[in-house]
Nucleic acid binder design. Structure first.
Lengths: 117, 117
DNA sequence: GCCCATAGTGTCGAAAAGGATACCATTGGA
DNA sequence: TCCAATGGTATCCTTTTCGACACTATGGGC
């Protein structure tokens, strides 16, 4: 499930915008990608960074990101299971985009009453 | 309707990413913004650029963009009604972001079989 | 034997987003 | 008189998304 969003595009010019958007859209993907920019994270590490995400959702988003080739998933056959998530090569090329999003948000969302300080 | 997406954020770091995303998310907003970057457009001009959008949807997206202060809406009291849409000041600051999205899409979506040529 | 942790999966249901279609007002032209 | 164009609204329905919650496997600690 999920992943139905970008099955096809009616490609007018500007399509590329939608196409990119469709990859990072989905409530948690942007943040996940953002956190992954700082380095490898395990499943529960990500979960702890996103207080309101459920396991099902997080799993889902991670699977979609993986399917889109933006992140890599490494499973260690250990007894308490361990799975590492990293940005892939392709995922790294998204960094400037994520950063642009972050910068704009920081600069233009004073109404969001956040404390970036 | 609509506009429920970004009523609140559970602001962890990375929140800014989601915040920005929430403004340009919504199936047509990205493209609309993109087209508006080239200059003023009337309602039906936008509609013609997006072959698969319905009036309801387009109206909706435009209203949300307006509510978020990204575009301006100018109504001319003419007999065949005329409404101009433009990027607002704030909207213009989003240009680099939209562009980043477009550039990445053009560079990284060969699978989308489009003909940018 | 029981509970904990990890990293999930499955099912259910509500809500939101999106789409189809029909309708409105005005007025100039045929 | 009737049609066309503009920029919408209103209503209804389907699809997609999101969230709650329960359940699984394995092995260590108590």
């Amino acid at each position: 499930m999920g992943r139905t969003r970008h099955d096809r595009f009616d490609c007018s010019p500007g399509c590329a915008v939608e196409a990119t958007l469709s990859l990072i859209d989905g409530k948690w993907k942007g943040v996940v990608l953002y956190h992954l920019m700082s380095g490898t994270l395990r499943f529960n590490e990500i979960r702890r960074k996103l207080p309101n995400v459920t396991q099902r959702m997080l799993t889902n988003q991670l699977r979609e990101l993986e399917a889109d080739g933006l992140i890599t998933r490494t499973v260690f056959a250990q007894v308490p299971p361990r799975v590492d998530y990293d940005l892939s090569e392709r995922g790294r090329t998204l960094e400037p985009v994520i950063l642009a999003l972050k910068v704009w948000g920081d600069a233009n969302m004073p109404a969001t009453e956040n404390a970036a300080a």
